[in-house]
Structures are given as C-alpha cells and as structure tokens.
Design a protein around this nucleic acid. Structure first.
Lengths: 216, 216
DNA sequence: CACGCCGCTCTTGTATACAAATTATCAGGC
DNA sequence: GCCTGATAATTTGTATACAAGAGCGGCGTG
C-alpha cells in the first residue's frame, strides 16, 4: 500500500527483522514517527499490528518492546507452519490450475538455479522460495488461513538463518519442492500435505542444528 | 481492558455478533464513534482489529462493511478450529496440572447440569463450554496458537446456532468433554487431539444440519 | 432515453493538541 | 548506604482539526 500506516509498518518491521532493533528495545511512538517521517497516528496503527503478530510485546505499563524469540518460540512457529501450510497444500492439491502449477515449476527452477551456482545466491533462493510457498497458500483459497500464515511465514528466522544453511539443505529444499509439484500434479491432497509438513519440519531441524541456542 | 479502544471493539463486535449490524452494513467511523461515545481514533483501532479478524471486509475504496459468512466460511472456521484446537489439546495433555484438570471437571459438570434441565439452559451451556475450551487452550501454552484461536472461537456461529441444537447434540458435547478429560487424565496427546478434532467436526455437522443454507 | 462528465458531499487518512498514566529522578529518613 | 516517597518528565491514550480521495447526483449531450 501507499498509505503512511503501511509504510510505517513495513519500515518498523524491517527494523526488527534486520536486527537493527534488537529484542528488548523499546518501541516509542514518537521516536519511530521521526524515523519513518510520519506522525504518531500511523505509527500507532503499525505498532498495534506488529503487536498482534507477536513481533513486539507490551509491558504491564503499556509500553512496547521488541519481542525475543527463544528456541521454544521458533519451534512453535515452525510447528504451526507445518500444520497450517500442510493444510494449505492439501487444499491446493485440489484447486491448483495449470497456470499455477507452471508458476511453481518456474519458481523452483529459478530456485534450483540459485542454489547450483558456485556461491549459492541466498537472496534469490529466499525470494523464489517465498514465491513458491505463496502460490500454494493463495491456491488454498482460505482467507483465514492466509492471514494466519502471513504472521508466521515472513519471520526473522528465515532470512537470518538461511545464511547458515549448508548447500545440502538448500538442495534438499529444492528437491522437496519437486516432490510437492509431483503431489500437486497427481492431485493428491494427503501426499501434498505430508510432503509440505515434512519440508517445514526438516527446515526447523536444519535451523536448530545451525543455531543451537541463540536468541535472535 | 478499560481503554476506549477496547470498549469500542467489544461494542462494535457485539453489534455484528448480535446481528444488529447485518452483513453488508457499512461501518462508518463517525457513526460508530457516536454510538460508542468515543472519538474516531479508538473506533479506528477497533475497526482495524475487526478487519484483521475477518468480521468486516474492506471495499476497494477503503470502506468497511460487515462480512457475510457463507457455508464455506463456516466450514473453513470449523476445520481450522478442529486442527488448531486439536493441536492445543495434544499440547495440553502433556501440560495440564491437577488444578486445571479439576477446573475442566467442574466446568463440564456445570455444563452437563445446564443440559439436563427440563428446558436446557443454553446460555449457561455456552458459558461453560467456552470456559472448558479456554482452559485447554491456555494449558497449551502457545501464544500464537492462543491468538489464532481467539479469532476463530468467539464466533457468531456458536451463539447463533446453539439455540437450534437439539438436546441430543448438547448431551453429545458433554459426553465428548468427558472423553477429553479421560484423555487428559491419561496424558495421551494423540487421544486428546483426535477427540477434540472429532468434537469440533461433529459440531460443524450439527450446525450444517440445523442451518442448511443460511448466511448469518 | 442512455451515457458520460463535472462538481459536491461524505468518508477515510493523517497530523496535531491535550489528558492521563507511568516511569524516572531526587530528596529525605531509617 | 539503601529504601521510601513525592515530584517531575516521558510516554501512551484520546480528541479534534485538516487534507485528500471516493462515491453520488445532477446536468448536459449524443
């Protein structure tokens, strides 16, 4: 969107995701308003949304601070994603059209390409991965599922940790995407669901292996 | 909360839930501000939240109208609830303490009582049912799960349709709650999950049988 | 008579001003 | 020296004022 409220949301969230505003940092409305270049009103709306999405937590006195994600939080996020996105995949298997299927193939071809280079292009990988998953979620045609996943998918974890992924993990992702495409082509909901769930659970463990006990 | 924003939220939502503001009705900020007796600012925050929870949808031009729930929406809500609340039950099975278990028994005793009367006390049934489910969700100790379910559980459907439930359905609910308590007492996550999922799926079908093709 | 254009009104989006509440500061006493 | 309490300074919550844009109606024209 082009509204000041949405710009504030995007900018503040990116402060959090980039680590520029580390966990525990106070999110003061006026200071953020100065940073974004808008008034407090749209900043307040952005903060309410970030709070609802668990990017920030409110202190007893009503102040907001950037939320800290411990290992339990990350496990929770991935577990819910596995369940919900598995469900999305199952629904998508019944609904995906030829065009969307072609999109998936294209996304994953580009993703595979990004991984195959001498130095894997992580940014490209993430963008294509995101596009791939978004096609599936959209195909599920379930508005509540979309908004629930929106607050889980676009998470710090992904961009923070993909850097630490070994090439083997990236390749595995590409391969699992291929399996998903097969399940979709076969229009088999339960196959798609289990491949997706396995895909996300594996990502969780790859993450935990890479970052045993950090608190991003 | 005691804040004007929360009062506005509660009041506007109850307008929607009661059917006083029927689907398609425009939600104009100033009119609602007059009704609630606050200014537009807290009303705006309330409306943003209601929009995020799918109680209202935004027209291309930025206006808000009360959302219409068709049968697909209701099926979606119950399906997601079955999945998420099943997950909550599984987690709760590992975590529920003796006190919480006693709470569940007490809630369900009262619920059973409300059903057993000559004229079943539906309001009492709903209150106790809600309390029962809330204990389980809280015991799951998963903040994201809590907020996801919050936007699904407190739904029009429950209070609108329970009135049409036959006594047999209410009794079945009470019985299924007993089964859940057994699963919790046995600390068996998968038993609890499947009983909860079955419980909610049955509720969906009881609903669909009672209201074949309405658009509340 | 139908269609499209223009202008007005109404509604939302943003900024600012004010009130209430919370936290920090500092003085005093134990 | 440390805790306690009052007071001052931030910070959030709410109200209002202003600006921009959407929708509506009336008018003219083909």
């Amino acid at each position: 969107m082009n509204t000041a409220s949405d710009r504030a949301y995007a900018e503040i969230r990116s402060l959090i995701l980039s680590g520029d505003a580390s966990p525990g940092t106070a999110l003061r409305e006026e200071a953020l308003a100065d940073i974004v270049g808008v008034s407090r009103t749209p900043v307040r709306e952005a903060l309410k949304r970030l709070e609802a999405e668990h990017y920030a937590i409110r202190t007893p006195g009503g102040r907001l601070v950037v939320a800290a994600l411990d290992v339990d939080d990350i496990t929770e996020i991935f577990t819910l994603r596995a369940m919900l996105e598995g469900h999305a995949a199952a629904r998508a298997a019944r609904r995906l059209g030829a065009a969307a299927l072609a999109d998936l193939r294209a996304s994953n071809a580009a993703l595979t390409d990004a991984v195959a280079r001498d130095e894997p292009d992580v940014a490209q990988f993430l963008a294509r991965n995101r596009a791939f998953h978004d096609v599936i979620i959209a195909a599920a045609a379930s508005p509540r599922l979309v908004s629930m996943l929106a607050s889980l998918v676009e998470q710090p974890i992904v961009r923070r940790t993909a850097i630490h992924y070994a090439r083997a993990d990236l390749e595995r992702s590409a391969h699992e995407h291929d399996l998903l495409i097969q399940a979709f082509a076969a229009r088999d909901p339960e196959w798609a669901r289990s491949v997706m769930a396995a895909h996300i659970h594996r990502a969780l463990h790859a993450f935990r292996a890479a970052m045993p006990s950090a608190q991003p």
